[in-house]
Design a binder for these strands. Structure first.
Length: 149
DNA sequence: GCCAACGTTGGC
DNA sequence: GCCAACGTTGGC
């Protein structure tokens, strides 16, 4: 059982959107480091749902992985924003997972607030210049963040 | 393999 | 909309 943090633009999918859907495919990851983390996720792992590129960036809730990595179908869809001309059905370099809603926090844990937490100094999210959209979270970091929610 | 140019991310 | 920082591409 591992812990993660994944970023999503709430315009695409928000924690409330996931709550309403119950479950959703997490696709469109187009960064190799992030993709490699996706591939190491196991069913039952939990993740913090982070809202990015929005008025209130921060951790908005918790989800869990209910299906391990599979080829990301959006890479093969020409009409998709995430289409990759180099991907083929036999050789699709991108991965997606399926996630389910676990919890929506009463209020978003803002990025500035998270940066103040010394327990989170090692988390890539709060490190300068980091743009990683999928990252591991240690058990200690997980507990520290849960205590803030 | 180097590295400049370009594209993207994402906070502000 | 700006821009800093990073990742990717492609010429050489």
């Amino acid at each position: 059982m591992a812990y993660w943090l994944m970023k999503s633009e709430p315009d695409e999918l928000s924690i409330k959107g996931l709550e309403q859907l119950g479950e959703a495919r997490w696709d469109g990851v187009r960064n190799y480091q992030a993709r490699n983390f996706l591939r190491t996720m196991a069913v039952g792992d939990e993740f913090f749902f982070y809202h990015s590129s929005c008025p209130e960036p921060g951790i908005a809730g918790v989800g869990k992985i209910i299906e391990a990595a599979f080829p990301d179908p959006t890479a093969l869809e020409p009409e998709s924003h995430y289409f990759d001309a180099k991907a083929t059905p036999g050789k699709n370099p991108w991965s997606a997972i399926t996630v389910a809603h676990v919890e929506t926090f009463p209020k978003v844990l803002g990025l500035g607030y998270l940066k103040q937490q010394t327990a989170l100094a090692e988390l890539p999210l709060v490190q300068k210049g980091s743009r990683l959209s999928v990252m591991p979270v240690s058990a200690e970091q997980w507990a520290a963040i849960c205590a803030l929610a």
